[in-house]
């Protein structure tokens, strides 16, 4: 029994799940109504589930989708992409440009799927640009993506000539809200689809193995016949795809876009999700499921803080404290000390 416990505790996914349980226990102790879910009706008269847990499922899914790509980038390149927020703005802008166009009256000019595919292509192109900088020019990922971080929101505004197109079509709101008749928020389903595809890809292709190999040692993986440049580049393109999905969700929520605010600081949440998932931030071994759980943990934390009337501006301060605590606890130096203490206790017992 204890042996089994120890094995579980040493597994990567243990950290985010423990954090999730801790947060849940805290909420249960302070105010059990946190877990209440009610079936209500939204403005369109469709049945929807509301409650804090639903909010977590809803908004956590955005971060979860990005965490998939971010984990791969982290694992392959040993760095993080800080431009995802700006890239989401670009993807959203492309969707609106294709669907409504400049000076449009809000009716759909093209099927939604066309807009989404266009966003996918553009987001993947920008991902490929980042990938070229990182993989071919060997620039640190965080700094290579600094370029798009600086320019992204400007490019997004430029795509629509700084106008804010509004989509009046009802079906467009389904992606970030609810599909009539289904009381669970659609972003959750989108996240599930993305996760399923990723897990299948990891199960049936060599993507996961190769990514890990490149992340651990790029030059030795090259000597073993892999192509580290391509693998690194590919991870950024996959992240681009994730970005396009989030762009769709984000624009669908508002039916319009605000270039400077849309998906603001989401890159930080995505990186935190990867870190919380216990992935090594300098590349190598990774666990996508742990990152995804990490994403929901972060949303859990955010929602909990909102519930205690923490303003959205002050939120980062509390988040930072939690993050530092988690990172310090998982730091090798501290871990060794704690392990030593545990062993000593056992020796005494």
């Amino acid at each position: 029994m204890t042996k089994k416990k120890m094995v579980f505790a040493s597994r990567q996914i243990f950290i985010p799940i423990a954090a999730l349980l801790l947060l849940a226990l805290f909420n249960l102790a302070v105010d059990p109504s946190f877990f209440k879910i009610t079936l209500g009706r939204n403005s369109a008269g469709d049945p929807v589930l509301t409650g804090y847990l639903m909010t977590i499922l809803d908004y956590g899914s955005e971060v979860a989708i990005l965490a998939i790509g971010m984990t791969l980038v982290t694992a392959a390149c040993g760095g993080q992409d800080i431009s995802v927020g700006a890239a989401v703005a670009i993807a959203g802008s492309v969707i609106l440009r294709v669907l409504v166009g400049i000076g449009g009256d809000g009716t759909l000019q093209a099927p939604i799927i066309v807009g989404f595919l266009a966003a996918c292509v553009v987001a993947m192109l920008f991902g490929a640009f980042n990938g070229v900088l990182v993989a071919i020019f060997n620039i640190q990922p965080m700094v290579a993506t600094l370029i798009l971080y600086t320019a992204g929101r400007s490019i997004a505004a430029w795509i629509n000539n700084n106008e804010l197109p509004i989509v009046t079509d009802k079906t467009f709101t389904y992606f970030g809200g609810f599909i009539p008749g289904i009381p669970i928020p659609t972003p959750f389903f989108l996240a599930v689809i993305c996760i399923a595809i990723t897990l299948l890809a990891l199960r049936f292709t060599t993507l996961g193995l190769y990514t890990q190999a490149v992340g651990i040692n790029a030059s030795s993986s090259r000597l073993n016949g892999l192509n580290p440049v391509f693998i690194k580049w590919l991870s950024f393109v996959i992240l681009g795809l994730c970005v396009a999905v989030v762009g769709l969700i984000k624009t669908s929520r508002l039916s319009t876009i605000n270039y400077s605010v849309i998906a603001k600081d989401i890159e930080m949440d995505a990186i935190l999700a990867v870190a919380l998932g216990g992935n090594v931030l300098s590349g190598g071994k990774f666990n996508i499921m742990a990152s995804i759980v990490g994403a929901y943990v972060i949303q859990f934390l955010t929602t909990t803080l909102y519930k205690f009337n923490v303003s959205s501006d002050a939120l980062p301060a509390y988040k930072a404290v939690v993050v530092i605590l988690l990172v310090v606890l998982s730091a090798p130096a501290i871990k060794d000390k704690l392990m030593g203490m545990v062993k000593k206790q056992k020796g005494v017992g």
Binding site: I271, K319, I324
Partner: peptide
């Protein structure tokens, strides 16, 4: 990661 948390903390 450390300075990311630092940034969050300072802004908050």
């Amino acid at each position: 990661i450390v300075s990311l948390a630092g940034m969050f903390f300072a802004r908050g």
